[in-house]
Amino acid sequence: MEILREYQNWLKEDAKTDKTIENYRTDVKGFLEWIGSKVDLEQLRRADFRNYFHHLRERAFAVSTINKKVNSLRSFNDYLLEEEIISKKLVYPEKDRIKIAKGSNSNIEIFSADEVERILSYLDREEISQRDRMIVHLLLYTGIRVGELVEIRLKHLDLLVGELKVVGKGSKYREIPLNQKVRKSIRSYLQEERNNSKYKESDYLILTQRSPKAHRDTINNLLNKIGDEVDLKVYPHKFRHTCFTILIRKGVDIATVSELAGHSSIETTHRYYLSTSKEEKAKAVELL
């Protein structure tokens, strides 16, 4: 299957071990063979994964085996999100490893204004590193994908002009303006924390204590920690969806949003960001 080959390459780019790649690939292949031609990947719902996990329990798979498959399909879910084949998170290990949660509607998930404020307030704490603050600001105020984030090189930044060149799908570049908050975060990180790192000669913007380049797991682990601290579901694409939804609601034309998002067509942007949210539907009904 072509999708399996592309997923396997995605795992390799994220520096997963050969053993992990093989285990994930085997588990995902099992799911794809089970679902067969019943649904296109773009039409996947949480219920499809829920039914698959129920199928595994009915076949008396060991709990440890099912939990391993849940983890593998969570990774596959992340891949589908990053490639924008689907528009929301569908696998939740913290729920699926214990019991199957009820399915949710098809709307994308975004942060409310209050939730954004909670996250930003948390980032203002003194103990938060300059790197972590910068990472969240980049995700929230540029809407870049996590795969694009970890690939940012110093040469892609022009802080004088306030611009970031992003390497998107198909190795295509797009230019994204940086607001003052993001510029300030990047400058602080470059001048202090990063400048004091043993990997400061690295070409990449985001470093870790053990590597001259951050990987997706670095970002996901950071966001999971923030989510625990502020009691929210926090993951990369939720920032992306929030960024572009805010732009649409503030009247930015869809063609501009599509370019900033790096979508292949305006139709993709329309499908993601011009649908009515659950909250907006509820407010509309209250007007009756």
Rank of each mutant, 00 (worst) to 15 (best):
H215P: 06
K238P: 04
T65C: 05
N9T: 12
R194F: 07
K88V: 02
T256I: 14
Y92K: 07
K181M: 14
Q180V: 12
T17E: 03
E2D: 13
P93N: 00
K172D: 02
I3F: 04
N224D: 15
E127V: 11
Y272K: 08
A101F: 01
T269Y: 05
G262A: 09
R271K: 15
L157E: 10
E42N: 15
N107F: 07
K225P: 10
K181L: 10
F53C: 08
T20M: 02
L41Y: 07
R153W: 11
M134G: 07
K99P: 01
S264E: 15
P93H: 13
R216T: 07
S202A: 11
R187N: 15
A60L: 15
K102W: 11
R57I: 09
K29P: 06
F53L: 05
R133D: 09
K250A: 10
F49N: 00
N67M: 06
N71F: 07
T142V: 02
L160N: 12
I119D: 03
R97D: 01
L80C: 05
K200M: 02
Y173P: 10
E6L: 13
K169T: 09
L154G: 11
C243P: 00
D78H: 14
K184E: 12
K169E: 08
K283F: 06
E229G: 08
N67D: 10
R131S: 04
R125M: 04
N9I: 01
Q43M: 11
E84L: 05
A113D: 15
L288W: 12
S185N: 15
V285A: 12
R59E: 03
I152C: 01
A101M: 13
L139P: 05
V63G: 05
E127K: 15
D253G: 03
E127P: 01
S104E: 09
E2K: 09
L73M: 06
V150K: 03
L205F: 01
L138F: 06
L159C: 02
A47C: 00
